[in-house]
Structures are given as C-alpha cells and as structure tokens.
C-alpha cells in the first residue's frame, strides 16, 4: 500500500474513538468578531464536501471512461482548497488553502499536502483510487468529531426563536 494511504487509513481508524488533536486547535481559531462558531460551520462544510468529492473521484478513477490525468488533476485542485501539494508546485491558491490558515486543522493540512503530492506521482488507477479512498475515510472521521463539537439541538431551538419558526419537535 502507498505509505500515505496507509497513514491516512491508520489515522482514520484511530479516530473512530479518539478525538483528533486538530479539533482542540480548531476550537481555538476565532473568526471575524472573535467567534468560533463560523469556523466550525465552515470546516464542517468543507470536510463534508471533501468526503463526497473523494468518494466520487475514487469511483471515477476506477472507470476507463474517465480520463486518468483529468481525474488526478481535479483531485489535486480540489485538495488544494484545503492545502497545497507538498512538492512546492502550487504556491498560489486556486480558491484558498483553508485547512491550516482558516480552520487550524494543521495535521489535516499536512496529510492533505503529502497525499496530494503522492497523487501526482501515482501512475496507476489502483494507486490513485487507494489514496482517494484513504482521504475519504480520514476526512470522514475528522468531520465526525467537528460534528460532535457543534450544539445542533440547542442552536436549533435558539434559531427557531430568533426566526419566529415553530420550536423543534422533542425527541420521542
């Protein structure tokens, strides 16, 4: 197995029950007015989208009707929204290298950078698919822990009050 894929799978498996250190750092990242809530919302959304993107790309790269070079390039470009490839090939952000600077998910940024560089070096569909699946799994676990930080119920109740909506139904 590609070393970065193995590291991502092992880290993701560990995070099934272990809270990533990145989560504590993310909770300390304050936004425009010293608020953390929007940092969490944006990080959660970015990782949710990235899980879906990695899933779709690992499906695509397994099929001959998707051009190999295009799938790899799109994957690297998508990942650059979180962190640039660790080969110095992309100094300027296409959209923004957000994982570290915006969300303070430093380990995620490092793993993404190394995985992105490995994708560019990969020569077979199977190797690319393995790295994409490993990223999908790892992002899914980090996303789960961001999800668990967020007080969905309490905010849903408060939001309904603020917006004049009906109160959320109680649990059965």
């Amino acid at each position: 197995m590609n070393p970065i894929a193995q590291e991502l799978f092992e880290t993701g498996d560990r995070y099934l029950m272990e809270r990533p250190e990145d989560i504590a750092a993310m909770r300390s990242r304050m936004g425009t007015r010293g608020q953390n809530m929007t940092v969490q919302i944006y990080a959660f959304s970015a990782l949710g989208s990235s899980v879906d993107a990695m899933y779709l790309l690992q499906e695509a790269v397994a099929k001959d009707d998707y051009d190999f070079d295009t799938v790899v390039k799109f994957a690297v470009d998508w990942l650059s929204t979180l962190a640039p490839p660790a080969d110095g090939s992309q100094g300027a952000a296409i959209i923004g290298h957000r994982a570290s600077v915006h969300y303070r998910l430093d380990q995620l940024a490092d793993l993404t950078s190394r995985a992105s560089a490995a994708l560019k070096q990969a020569t077979t569909r199977a190797e690319v698919r393995e790295i994409l699946q490993a990223l999908e799994h790892y992002y899914n676990q980090v996303r789960t822990w961001i999800d668990l930080e967020f007080p969905w119920h309490e905010l849903a109740v408060k939001y309904a009050e603020l917006m004049g909506d009906p109160a959320p139904r109680p649990a059965p």
Binding site: L16, T144, D147
Partner: peptide, 17 residues
C-alpha cells in the same frame, strides 16, 4: 453515535472503510 439533521428520524455512525 450522532443524529441526522435533515433525514428526520435517523441515527448515524461512522465506520471503518
């Protein structure tokens, strides 16, 4: 274990790959 926010009465659990 977590709860869905859009899919009504559904719990969710992340799994190994």
């Amino acid at each position: 274990v977590r709860h869905a926010r859009i899919c009504e009465s559904e719990w969710m659990l992340s799994t190994p790959y």
